[in-house]
């Protein structure tokens, strides 16, 4: 019996605009990947969910606020409780925060302006399903492109020692403690402002983002193989 490829879905909100880039990146590393519309359902065999970047509902209200209140949100919560992996990138991160899945808030950059550039990051925690292929403390380069990316901690909701996954090497948007990406307590949800899906090929500037997806791919592969082993032992 051969194990099938890990399966991923990209949630397309009205106004998402990095959905196609995320799909390309997922397929690039070997995921069996597809889009899921907000009126549709998360597949029962899905291992990884990506909430992509963009401007859901134009971000005319507080960023991510409208998208977080879509009916699909309850499916996303169930998926998370079952231990499924979720990556929220940029607007996807903002949506996860608005849903209350991740703590804190994302406010307008301290410059008041949209910033698009490649920045240096430090990998703070390599013991998550998304960062296994990095060294702790490793410096990597990923693009940022956001107007509302200043992460702020809210009343003790984030214990930054445990939850911070990526930090900016220098201040770019005024974020508390240079926080660029965080996880939930169970470490199966990653939210980050930088765009790993835009850094999977040297040709377009950097391939440091590739390992975010490879880590998740490998994590899913090994855990499903372990499950398979256990099942076999059980049968024997």
């Amino acid at each position: 019996m051969t194990a099938s490829f890990p399966k991923a879905q990209v949630v397309v909100y009205p106004g998402s605009n990095c959905d196609r880039d995320a799909l390309w990146a997922l397929r690039y590393v070997g995921f069996d990947a597809e889009f899921v519309d907000i009126r549709s359902h998360i597949g029962s065999d899905v291992n990884l969910l990506v909430l992509p970047g963009g401007f859901s509902y134009g971000d005319y209200l507080r960023v991510g606020a409208v998208a977080a209140r879509e009916p699909i949100s309850s499916e996303i919560r169930d998926f998370m409780s079952r231990g499924g992996l979720i990556i929220g990138i940029c607007n996807g991160f903002q949506i996860l925060i608005e849903m209350g899945i991740l703590p804190g808030a994302l406010l307008q950059n301290s410059t008041g302006k949209f910033i698009c550039k490649i920045v240096e990051l430090e990998v703070v925690d390599n013991e998550t399903p998304f960062t296994r292929y990095f060294e702790r403390g490793e410096k990597i380069h990923l693009p940022i492109a956001h107007g509302f990316g200043r992460y702020v901690k809210t009343n003790g909701l984030v214990n930054s020692q445990d939850n911070v996954i990526f930090r900016y090497a220098q201040d770019v948007n005024g974020a508390d403690e240079l926080i660029a990406g965080i996880s939930n307590e169970n470490k199966n949800v990653l939210g980050l402002m930088p765009h790993p899906e835009r850094a999977i090929e040297k040709l377009i500037g950097s391939d440091d983002g590739l390992r975010v997806f490879l880590s998740a791919f490998n994590y899913i592969k090994t855990s499903s193989e372990n499950m398979l082993q256990k099942t076999k032992v059980g049968v024997a």
């Binding site: 970047g53 949209f114 698009c116 550039k117 835009r198």
Partner: peptide, 12 residues
């Protein structure tokens, strides 16, 4: 740098 010049992942 105020324009997103990378979305689409095709900017070589």
């Amino acid at each position: 740098e105020r324009y997103d010049y990378m979305v689409g992942t095709d900017t070589v």
